[in-house]
Design a protein around this nucleic acid. Structure first.
Lengths: 229, 229
DNA sequence: GTCTATAGTCGGATAGAC
DNA sequence: GTCTATCCGACTATAGAC
């Protein structure tokens, strides 16, 4: 329990361990990763982990924290921007669709990067399926803002309230079309005899997702949803 | 290495261990589960694991094997049936859509069962993200047949070849809409302040997915895909 | 602040009685 | 075929030198 709290200037080992944790916890889960592994990768001694973070789990939480504040946040500026717009004046359905595409595009971009699959994306996926206390952080600061923003945009298109459960469910299925390329990565690689997500593959995925999005949402823009002529 | 091979009549402990493994490996992964835990749950002694299965990993593979042959296969008869139909006479686009809905409906059904989320579905999800040798089995005997069948049905609707990469990608996004309720379970539960997938929740999910499916595929049936008037 | 050495725990596989 | 007892390795955290 001799947790050195937020030891002042976190000299160097601290930062190195977090970087190492990002890699190692991407590959193994909390149980699977060992402190020796982490220490070796960081190039520090193994005792530094209990010293700086109070234990392995402390390091894990610090990694998540780092993830949320530094990495994996290329989507956030987009979301913030869109939220601002939403608060000022309600966009037209066409603009809302464009907004959704912008978010999904950025999301896809970072999701399909090779490194993503082996680092932070896996951490978040694991947390979805076996939530630890880290999931609260991830949900509140990452998932929820994005999810809600997409819902708000979709609400414009569907002419419903953003809190309508059926609309939130629709949001979820839309997100599912993207996330499957992470959670079902191995399947699609085998189905198409791909080796990895390279530039050419990413392009095809992007096209498939956007085509589908248009197919789903475009008609609703032209002839308003649920109106019976 | 004194693996008793396929010890004849696998008396009783063997079966009990597999059942226990189904539960335990659903909660923890291969590393996370302990032999003591498994043995206790099965009501046998811990030494029985190396004895019958050659080790913990052997038990894990046996659990997967069991999973594939006995459980989680309520979809298979449907798939077989549809494959037969497909081989005999090509269905109409409308029939194809109905086929997809049948498969997805069954899939959703077993996916949203409470027990699924804590047992086999988690095992399969984990294998998607960190494939072990078990994934080969799962892919060939489970995922691929279903995925290919959906592709074949979609091919009828889109008037494309079932091996067309863009069509396979589209299949994947469609599947993604369903799978997100497993891989993003925690998220949707929080977004809608649900406690679990109960009957009422399942109904809503079902409706959202089917609505979306209709939205995507129905127009393609009425006015054939990609044809420009 | 960082290291080495080590204590203390736990897990998996084995030996051998019944 | 099933059990108990035990070995051995690996892991995390601590103690204490520098």
């Amino acid at each position: 329990m001799t947790n050195p709290i937020d030891a002042q200037p976190g000299p160097d080992a601290r930062q190195r361990l977090i970087e190492a944790g990002l890699e190692i916890f991407g590959i193994f889960n909390l149980e699977g990763a060992t402190t020796r592994q982490l220490a070796q990768r960081a190039g520090v001694n193994q005792a530094a982990i209990p010293y700086y973070f109070g234990g392995k789990e402390g390091l894990y939480l610090a990694v998540i924290e780092h993830l949320l504040t530094h990495k994996a946040s290329r989507v956030r500026p987009l979301v913030l921007e869109i939220r601002e717009i939403l608060e000022q004046k309600p966009p037209s359905p066409g603009e809302a669709l464009a907004g959704i595409k912008t978010i999904f595009g950025a999301f896809l971009q970072i999701l399909l990067e090779d490194k993503a699959t082996t680092t932070w994306a896996r951490i978040i996926m694991r947390e979805q399926m076996q939530p630890t206390k880290a999931f609260d952080l991830i949900y509140e600061r990452w998932i929820r803002p994005v999810h809600e923003t997409v819902s708000a945009l979709l609400a414009v298109i569907l002419r419903k309230k953003a809190t309508d459960p059926s609309l939130i469910l629709r949001t979820h299925t839309l997100v599912g079309q993207i996330l499957i390329f992470l959670s079902g990565r191995e399947t699609i690689l085998r189905r198409l005899k791909w080796e990895a997500y390279n530039e050419s593959e990413r392009k095809q995925i992007r096209k498939a997702v956007f085509d589908q999005l248009d197919l789903i949402l475009q008609p609703l823009i032209e002839r308003p949803a649920r109106s019976r002529p």
